[in-house]
C-alpha cells in the first residue's frame, strides 16, 4: 500500500490464516467424523486424520436420511422461493415506480409495512393461516351469515366450512416466505435509478407497459436479479423453522430437517459418523453456489443495504 510494513503485513497474514482455520475447523472435523466407522468415531480423543469410510457413510446417510427425496423437496422449495419472490416483487416494483394511480401511496405503505416485521415473530398465527388459508373467506361467510340466508330462502340447512390446508404442500413451504417486501424495495430503488429517457423513448415508439417491461426493464435488471437470486436460493435451502412447522409428512420435509433427525440424541445409537457425513452432504449445494458465484453474492449483499 502506501508504505512498506513487513511486520504488520506478516501479522495480517497470520490473522487471516487463523481466521480461515477457525472457519474450516468445524467443517474439517465433520469430514473426519464422517469418514470413520461408528466404533472409531466414539474413540476419545477423536482421530485427527480422516478414515476410509467416507463413501460408505455417505451412502448410508443418503438412504437413512431419505435424502434422495428430501433434496428434490429442498430444490423445489429453494427455487420456488427464488423465482416466486423475484417475479412477484419485480411486478409490484414496476407498478409502484412506473404507474400513476389513485392508491399508489397506500399500496406503497402496505407493501413496505411488511419490511418491519420478520416472519419469526408471528410464528403461531402464520401457522394457522397456512393450516387453513381460506380462513378469511370463512369469516366473510360467517359474518354475512350466508348459511342463515340460504336457510331462509330455500328452507334447507347447510353448513359452510371452507378449508384450504397447505400443510405438507410445496405452496405451504414457499408462499409464507415470499411474503416480505425486501426484494420489492430493492427493485424499486433500482428502477428509480434508470434514466427517464428510456421510458419516454419506448412510449414514443408506442410500446405498451408490458412491452417496455419485457424489452427494457428486464434486460437491465439481469445483474440485480442474479445477485438477489443467489441470496434467496441460499435463504430457501437453509430454511429451518418453516419446514419444521409446516411438514408432518416425512416425505415433504427438506434436507435440513432430514439432517436434524439423524443427529444422535441421548437415547439413540451415537452414529455421529453418519450424522456429520449427512451434514456435509446437506451443505454441499449452497457451498457450491457461494464458491462459484462469490462475486455476485457480495454485490447482492452490499446492494441490499442501500
Amino acid at each position: 500500500m502506501i508504505e512498506r510494513t513487513p511486520v504488520l503485513d506478516l501479522a495480517c497474514h497470520a490473522i487471516l490464516v487463523l481466521g480461515a482455520a477457525i472457519v474450516c475447523m468445524p467443517i474439517y472435523f465433520a469430514f473426519v467424523a464422517g469418514s470413520l466407522t461408528i466404533q472409531e468415531v466414539q474413540q476419545v480423543p477423536l482421530p485427527w486424520v480422516p478414515g476410509d469410510q467416507f463413501l460408505v457413510n455417505a451412502e448410508a446417510a443418503w438412504t437413512r436420511g431419505n435424502f434422495a427425496r428430501l433434496f428434490v423437496n429442498s430444490a423445489i422449495v429453494a427455487v420456488g422461493i427464488t423465482v416466486g419472490k423475484i417475479a412477484v416483487s419485480m411486478l409490484s416494483a414496476f407498478a409502484l415506480a412506473y404507474f400513476r394511480f389513485r392508491w399508489r401511496m397506500t399500496a406503497f405503505w402496505l407493501i413496505f409495512a411488511s419490511l418491519m416485521l420478520p416472519v419469526e415473530v408471528r410464528i403461531v398465527p402464520t401457522f394457522e393461516s397456512v393450516a387453513n388459508a381460506a380462513l378469511p373467506l370463512q369469516w366473510v361467510v360467517d359474518e354475512l351469515d350466508l348459511a342463515g340466508w340460504w336457510h331462509a330462502i330455500t328452507g334447507n340447512r347447510i353448513e359452510i366450512a371452507l378449508q384450504w390446508n397447505m400443510v405438507d404442500t410445496y405452496s405451504g413451504l414457499i408462499l409464507p416466505l415470499i411474503a416480505s417486501a425486501t426484494a420489492t424495495f430493492l427493485f424499486r430503488q433500482f428502477f428509480l435509478t434508470i434514466p427517464d429517457e428510456l421510458c419516454e423513448a419506448a412510449r414514443i415508439d408506442g410500446a405498451s407497459p408490458w412491452r417496455f417491461f419485457r424489452s427494457i426493464l428486464l434486460p437491465l435488471s439481469t445483474s440485480n436479479m442474479v445477485a438477489l437470486a443467489i441470496i434467496l436460493f441460499l435463504h430457501g435451502w437453509n430454511q429451518y423453522l418453516w419446514p419444521l412447522l409446516f411438514t408432518t409428512d416425512k416425505n415433504m420435509a427438506t434436507a435440513v430437517i432430514g439432517l436434524k433427525h439423524l443427529i444422535p440424541r441421548s437415547d439413540m445409537e451415537p452414529a455421529w459418523n453418519i450424522a456429520m457425513n449427512a451434514a456435509l452432504i446437506t451443505m454441499l449445494p449452497p457451498v457450491v453456489v457461494v464458491v462459484a458465484l462469490q462475486r455476485w453474492l457480495v454485490k447482492g449483499l452490499v446492494d441490499s443495504s442501500k
Binding site: 487471516l16 480461515a20 430454511q239 457461494v290
Partner: peptide, 20 residues
C-alpha cells in the same frame, strides 16, 4: 474461505459446533 459460513444453514452450523 472466510465467506464459506454464509452458505451454511444456521441449523447445520449449530450441529457442527454441537459435535465439536
Amino acid at each position: 474461505v472466510l465467506l464459506l459460513p454464509y452458505a451454511i444453514a444456521p441449523a447445520i452450523a449449530g450441529i457442527l459446533w454441537a459435535f465439536l
